[in-house]
Amino acid sequence: MRANMLPTEDFERDPSAFTDRVTSDGRYGRVAEPGRYRLVVSRACPWAHRVVMVRRIMGLEEAISLAVVDPLQEVIDGEPHWVFSEGNGDRDGKDPVLGIHALREAYLARDPHYTGGVSVPALVDVATGELVSNDYDMLSVDLATEWGDLAREGAPSLYPELLREEIDTVSAWIHRDLNHGVYRAGFAPDQEVYEDAVSNVFSRLDYLERRLAGHRYLVSDHITLADLRLWATLVRFDAVYHGHFKCNRRKLSEYPVLWAYARDLYQTPGFGDTTDLLHIREHYYYVHTGINPSRIVAVGPDPYGWEEPHYREALNGEPFRGDTPPDPVPENERVTDLEFQG
């Protein structure tokens, strides 16, 4: 996720610049091994959030360490950058493991001539300090499928082979109409592009309202990567996309089925306990000066709504279906209490 994108043309997301894969057998040159890699994320970013959720659900906290950048960013050489501050790094504003202040240092360690964008999530090789990958989709898939020997006992199958075609199909239209669609609306350069994007966003939400009325989860009777990819957008919808990105035909909380589905997942380990609504609001409203030049950060909505009963247990399905939920979040990775997120 990059920031401060100006509404000058129809929004297009930059392709991932570095796409090395880390696998159990090292068939692409890098082997999954404990302590070798560090995952750098922003808790504001939906693309990074899905990777954090996979890491947590699979129980990979000890295998892959986590670094969280400051949500407000810092202008370096005229461009906003993801950086570590005293609150997210050491007293010198550096990551205590990688020893860097700005994430771009890992990009430049990989390619000293790199001039492209710097985005999260970023998997960094601790031994060399070099960026390995900023491919959020493949990072999610590989953490779900290639780190099995290092995953916790009882970890679920988030990307089972028999369901991969359906998961990929569902994920494709979720990406087009929702994950990407809200950004098309928020950074639309003109009324026509904006209205087209908003129409697609709400047509897809209307469809999901019907689809999930009789099914607890998107693809199967347990959570899969499709649910994580959708939920990363849903949890941000009322907080930032509804107002900040002008996706204001309806709120998520005005969709009875979708709102219950979203609360169900929020209350499932790996979802709500990796979500920081304060980071989300601060980043979007403060950094996107092209659409919010005042940098006034919205105070709502009330975060305690996420803890209301959802009653989705009546539907067929269980989040981990025979497997077990992850252990409590490690002390050093706990997010801000809801009391301070509202």
Results as ranks from 00 to 15, higher is better:
Leu208Ile: 11
His81Leu: 10
Ser119Asn: 09
Val120His: 03
Ser157Arg: 13
Ala262Ser: 15
Gly290Lys: 02
Ala122Phe: 03
Leu225Met: 10
Met138Ile: 11
Gly272His: 05
Tyr284Pro: 00
Glu105Tyr: 08
Arg56Ser: 08
Asp206Gly: 03
Val40Gln: 02
Leu108Lys: 09
Tyr28Asp: 10
Gly300His: 13
Ser171Asp: 13
Val287His: 07
Ser85Gln: 11
Gln267Glu: 12
Met5Ala: 12
Arg13Asp: 03
Leu212Ser: 11
Arg216His: 05
Glu254Gln: 15
Phe320Ile: 10
Arg236Glu: 07
Val54Ile: 08
His222Val: 10
Asp221Met: 04
Thr336Phe: 02
Glu282Asn: 11
Glu166Ala: 14
Asp327Trp: 08
His175Ser: 13
Asp221Gly: 11
Val51Cys: 09
Lys94Tyr: 12
Arg295Cys: 11
Arg43Tyr: 13
Ser157His: 12
His113Trp: 09
Arg43Pro: 01
Val120Cys: 07
Asp20Ile: 01
Ile280Tyr: 00
Pro319Ala: 13
Pro156Leu: 08
Leu178Ser: 05
Ala197Tyr: 00
Val132Lys: 02
Asp177Val: 00
Arg184Val: 00
Phe245Trp: 01
Asp92His: 08
Arg56Ile: 06
Gly272Val: 08
His288Gly: 00
Pro330Tyr: 05
Pro256Ser: 10
Ala260Trp: 06
Tyr159Asn: 05
His215Tyr: 07
Gly129Glu: 09
Asn332Ser: 14
Gly186Trp: 00
Glu62Thr: 13
His49Ser: 10
Val83Asn: 05
Asp92Leu: 07
Leu163Pro: 05
Ala102Val: 08
Asp111Asn: 14
Tyr114Phe: 15
Tyr114Asp: 09
Lys251Cys: 09
Phe187Asn: 00
Pro189His: 02
Leu228Arg: 00
Ala188Leu: 01
Gly117Asn: 10
Gly93Lys: 03
Leu66Arg: 10
Leu205Gln: 05
Leu230Glu: 05
Leu39Lys: 11
Val240Ala: 02
Thr19Lys: 15
Asp227Trp: 02
Ile64Asn: 06
Thr115Met: 12
Val118Lys: 01
Val193His: 00
Val22Lys: 06
Pro303Glu: 06
Glu62Phe: 03
Asp168Cys: 07
Ser253Arg: 15
Ala109Thr: 11
Val75His: 07
Val52Trp: 00
Glu308Thr: 14
Val235Asn: 05
Leu131Asp: 07
Ser294Arg: 07
Arg91Gly: 14
Gly116Met: 02
Asp273Arg: 03
Leu6Asp: 14
Pro80Gln: 13
Tyr285Cys: 05
Glu192Ala: 15
Phe18Ala: 08
Asn292Glu: 04
Ile174Ala: 01
Arg104Asn: 10
Tyr159Thr: 07
Ser42Met: 01
Asp238Arg: 04
Ser65Leu: 06
Arg281Pro: 01
Phe187Val: 01
Gly154Phe: 03
Pro7Phe: 03
Asp273Glu: 10
Arg55Tyr: 11
Leu123Ser: 10
Met138Asn: 13
His81Lys: 14
Trp82Asn: 07
Phe320Asn: 06
Glu307Met: 13
Arg13Glu: 11
Leu108Ala: 09
Ala260Lys: 12
Ala239Gln: 10
Leu228Asn: 02
Pro121Trp: 02
Asn200Trp: 03
Thr324Gly: 09
Val240Asn: 01
Glu61Cys: 11
Glu165Met: 13
Val40Asn: 02
His244Thr: 05
Arg27Met: 10
Val198Ser: 00
Pro189Ala: 01
